[in-house]
Simulated scan of single mutants.
Amino acid sequence: MSKTSRNPDNLPALAGQAEGGFAAKVSEAVLDLVSSRPESARQASTLPSEAARAAQSVAQQAAQKAALAAGSLALPPGPLGWLTILPELLTVWRIQRQAVADIAAIYGRTADLGREQMLYCMFRHTAAQAVRDLAVRVGERMVVQPVAAKVMQQISRVVGVKLSESLVRKSISRWVPLAGAAAVSAYAFYDTQRVARTAIELFEGEQIIELKP
């Protein structure tokens, strides 16, 4: 392996070369992720207080699981770390997707969990501009607007570009053994908690699905 590929000082240049292809892969992964809804073994809670406790438990368990998975996959340093970025991302996303499905089930809202709701819950905080029109709060209600497949593809591309820019910058930490893995683990924990909070906010309130002509 050349000295250039082992030198962290050259990482931004390497990142710029890889970012375009990486964004396309992330966009494709986003679209695949939200196109299906995982099954949930959770039962609907009849009392709001029970639902809130169960949802918080799901959030905590998912965050811990995501942190462990992300930290483990981020352990290889240097060039090997590049190879684990997408697998780590997909692993964390699947954990988050299941958490969203479980929270919807707890609130008895599984039937309301479509691709728009899933996309909104998972990427509201990391790609807000891309998903801001999918769900809009009007008073005490959340109005969800279904979109055509072509629009969903466009949104996934924007999300992919936005996330790839952020992820490539953060991947510099992978050149620092252990410390980099700890940072990745901490971020996965925090990110998963935010996804769960968005799902709780969406499904514990009244939701209107606004069909456009």
Rank of each mutant, 00 (worst) to 15 (best):
V143E: 01
D112G: 02
A44F: 02
S35L: 09
L86K: 00
R53H: 06
R137Q: 14
L163H: 12
Q60P: 09
A66R: 10
E19F: 05
V131M: 05
W175Q: 04
G21N: 12
G205K: 09
Q43R: 03
V131H: 08
V34C: 08
G108Q: 01
Y190N: 06
A135C: 15
G108W: 00
I103V: 13
A111Q: 04
F22K: 05
R53A: 08
L68Q: 10
S35T: 05
A127S: 00
D32W: 03
Y120Q: 01
L90M: 05
F123G: 02
L178S: 15
Q153W: 07
A67Y: 03
I103W: 12
A99C: 00
I172F: 09
S173I: 11
P87M: 04
G21W: 11
A135V: 14
G78T: 02
A182E: 15
R137K: 07
M152L: 15
K150H: 06
I155D: 12
E206S: 14
F203K: 09
A54N: 09
R94V: 00
I103C: 08
M118I: 10
Y107I: 00
R157Q: 13
E50M: 10
L163P: 09
P8H: 05
R197S: 07
V168N: 06
V144R: 07
P79S: 02
A69F: 04
A199T: 10
P213S: 15
A111C: 01
L202D: 03
V176W: 12
N7E: 06
Q17Y: 08
V92K: 01
L75E: 11
I200D: 00
A105M: 03
M118L: 15
K150F: 05
V143M: 11
A29K: 02
D133I: 07
G108D: 03
Q17S: 05
A63P: 00
G78R: 00
V176E: 12
L80E: 02
K150D: 14
K150C: 08
G139P: 09
F203G: 05
E165D: 13
V26W: 09
D32L: 07
E201Y: 05
T46L: 15
L202F: 11
R42E: 15
I95G: 03
R137G: 07
T126P: 08
A182G: 14
L113I: 02
L31E: 11
K170G: 13
L178Q: 13
G205N: 14
E201M: 03
Q98G: 06
V143D: 02
R132P: 07
G81F: 02
A181G: 10
T192Q: 03
L14I: 13
S36L: 09
V30L: 02
P177N: 10
M1Y: 15
M142W: 13
L33V: 04
